[in-house]
Amino acid sequence: MKRGSTRNKVIGGVVALALTFVLYQGIVNARVFFYNVDEAIAQQAELGDRTFRMQGTVVAESGTSEGGALVFTVAYNDATAQVRHVGPEPSDLFDLGEPVVVEGHWNGDVFESSQILVKHDESYVEDNPNRVDYNLDTGVG
């Protein structure tokens, strides 16, 4: 019985630790505020240089600047913001018209991003092999 009760405590402890870790991660990450572009602009003063996440659709791409930064514009509810991204390359889905979530902070009127996540929506459209733009970027199947 003694051995059994030790085992019970070990099992319970491991599960409790795992649950605490997951909940902790969830709460800590939920504290990184998630704003739409219009809200981020409205609260620019309060946000200062705090790190937060901003959601919007890519409406213009200005290409790569001399510092290696990726410069583009995102929009949400008729508000637009310019983003200057330095960091890991976004996924292949990053394109005009795609919704993205950028993580970073305001630097004047420019959003300095360190991470771009492409937020895919719930549309699943068949890729037509005859579509011209497809063959351009992949070539092979």
Partner: peptide, 24 residues
């Protein structure tokens, strides 16, 4: 390949992980 990351502490992913741990 889609978002750009394997793991994000997104509400859906976090709550699904909580589910896994609860049933474990």
């Amino acid at each position: 390949p889609t978002w750009g990351v394997y793991w994000e502490w997104d509400p859906r992913i976090t709550s699904t992980t909580v589910t896994l741990v609860l049933y474990l």
